[in-house]
């Protein structure tokens, strides 16, 4: 969701203290819910793609990475096929670098195989404006010419600003644009049990 922060938010992550405002952060998807969603999505991917050997899961960091790994496990359990997993940072392709003061930190990119002739499934944690997916597609095309590109989002908030369609949605969660939606681990990183929280926004900062 690198690109999907509301425009009023500062670059970089918020201080941990800010993530539990007084009215409480709201867990909208817990670890069990996430696992169920990823199991269903894996089945949908199998259903829609006949030749799984050409499948290439490409995670948008950071949130997409643990999700893509879980999806790959699910796919190999269902279809007995090892699915390639890559990581593609979209930061250098963002469309909002001009309006920001401090530049966002880059994240890692690891693309272990070529994307030519592959069915690429982009995996992101939270989809909203569609700008991250747009940036990810531009980045992907610089790596080669995939046969097709599909998109997984664990959470779809709506608020689309570009004509982008999410092919596989874990859960639709209506939010206000100023809210923050985050995939979190228990201790701030993305290890162990995960959850999706909505952090009501719009109070401490204005646009």
């Amino acid at each position: 969701m690198a690109n999907d922060l509301p425009q009023s938010s500062p670059p970089g992550a918020r201080a941990p203290g800010q993530e539990t405002p007084q009215n409480g952060s709201n867990v909208v998807l817990d670890d069990t819910g996430i696992r169920r969603a990823l199991t269903r999505i894996a089945h949908e991917i199998v259903e829609r793609n006949e030749d799984l050997s050409r499948l290439y899961l490409v995670a948008v960091p950071n949130g997409g990475v643990p999700l893509a790994r879980q999806l790959a496990e699910n796919l190999s359990a269902i279809a007995d096929e090892e699915v390639t997993v890559g990581i593609l940072d979209t930061t250098l392709y963002r469309d909002d670098l001009i309006v920001r003061g401090e530049r966002p930190r880059l994240r890692r990119t690891e693309m272990p195989s070529v994307v030519d002739e592959r069915v690429v499934v982009l995996v992101d944690d939270v989809a909203s404006t569609g700008r991250t997916i747009r940036a990810a597609m531009d980045a992907l095309m610089d790596f080669g010419r995939p046969t097709s590109v599909q998109v997984v989002a664990l959470v779809d908030r709506g608020h689309r600003e570009l004509p982008i369609k999410i092919d596989y949605v874990g859960k639709n969660i209506p939010t206000r644009t100023e809210d923050l939606v985050r995939l979190q681990g228990e201790s701030g990183d993305l290890e162990g049990p995960l959850r999706v929280v909505v952090l009501p926004g719009g109070q401490e900062e204005s646009a």
Partner: peptide, 23 residues
């Protein structure tokens, strides 16, 4: 450290076929 970390990510770009980004 920030400059070095950023440069390490830039090194990955040098391994791609298309070494140019629109930033």
């Amino acid at each position: 450290e920030l400059i070095l970390e950023t440069a390490e990510h830039m090194q990955e770009l040098g391994t791609r076929a298309v070494k140019k980004v629109p930033t």
